Amino acid sequence: AGLEKQLAIELKVKQGAENMIQTYSNGSTKDRKLLLTAQQMLQDSKTKIDIIRMQLRRALQ
């Protein structure tokens, strides 16, 4: 149950990062740093999601 909860949280983080990227990508240059931060968050989240999914698969075997 813990892994499913972690996965749900990470999927929400990923969605939030995608929303932030959309918001900041057509903003001013001061938003550039926020855009880069959001892109890093998205990448980190995708990595965590992959790891959690692997752990889930392993647990189900």
Rank of each mutant, 00 (worst) to 15 (best):
G27N: 10
I49V: 05
D50I: 00
L34Y: 01
L36T: 13
Q61R: 15
D50S: 14
S45P: 00
E4L: 10
K5V: 03
A38S: 01
A38C: 13
Q6Y: 10
Q22K: 07
Q40H: 04
G16N: 14
T47M: 10
Y24D: 13
A59P: 06
L35Y: 06
I21F: 05
L56M: 12
L3A: 07
Y24E: 13
E4P: 05
K46A: 01
S45F: 15
I52Q: 00
Q43R: 14
Y24F: 05
L56W: 01
I21G: 14
K46G: 00
T29Y: 05
T37G: 10
R57M: 07
Q55P: 03
M54Y: 05
L60F: 02
E4H: 05
A17Q: 06
T29K: 14
S28N: 10
K30Q: 02
S45R: 00
S28F: 03
L7D: 12
Q15M: 13
Q55K: 15
D50K: 15
Q22L: 04
G16V: 13
I51S: 15
I21C: 09
G27E: 11
Q22V: 06
K30V: 00
Q43E: 05
G27C: 06
I51L: 11
G16C: 07
K14H: 07
Q55Y: 12
I51D: 07
I21M: 07
T23A: 11
K12H: 10
K30P: 02
N19C: 06
G27Y: 01
A8K: 13
I51W: 15
L11W: 03
G2T: 13
M41D: 04
Q40E: 03
E4I: 10
L42N: 02
I9F: 08
M41N: 00
A8R: 09
S25K: 06
L60C: 10
T29E: 04
M20S: 06
D31S: 15
K46D: 01
K30M: 00
L56R: 03
R57F: 03
G2R: 10
I9P: 13
K12Q: 06
N19A: 12
I49G: 00
G2P: 10
S25I: 03
A1Q: 15
Q55C: 02
D50Y: 01
G2S: 11
L60P: 08
Q39P: 00
Q40D: 00
K5R: 07
R53V: 04
K33G: 10
S28Q: 11
L7C: 04
L56A: 07
K48A: 02
L35E: 00
R32D: 06
L36Y: 09
L42E: 02
N26P: 04
A17F: 07
D44E: 11
L34E: 05
K5F: 01
A1D: 12
G2N: 15
L3C: 06
Q40S: 04
Q43H: 10
E18S: 06
L36P: 08
L60A: 09
K12T: 08
V13H: 12
I21V: 11
R57G: 05
D44C: 12
Q40A: 08
K46S: 04
Y24M: 10
D31N: 14
K12R: 10
D44W: 15
G27T: 10
L42A: 01
L36H: 13
R58P: 03
T29N: 08
K14S: 10
R58T: 09
D31L: 15
V13G: 11
I51H: 14
L56I: 07
A8G: 06
R57A: 09
K46F: 01
D31A: 15
T47K: 13
L11R: 13
Q22C: 01
K30R: 08
L60Q: 13
D31W: 15
S28L: 07
Y24Q: 12
L35A: 03
L35H: 01
L34N: 03
K12G: 09
I51E: 12
I49P: 00
D50V: 02
N26A: 11
G27L: 02
D31T: 15
K5T: 11
L3I: 11
T37P: 02
Q15R: 03
M54W: 06
L60D: 02
V13P: 04
D44M: 08
S28P: 09
L3W: 08
L11A: 10
T29A: 11
S45H: 01
D44P: 02
A38M: 11
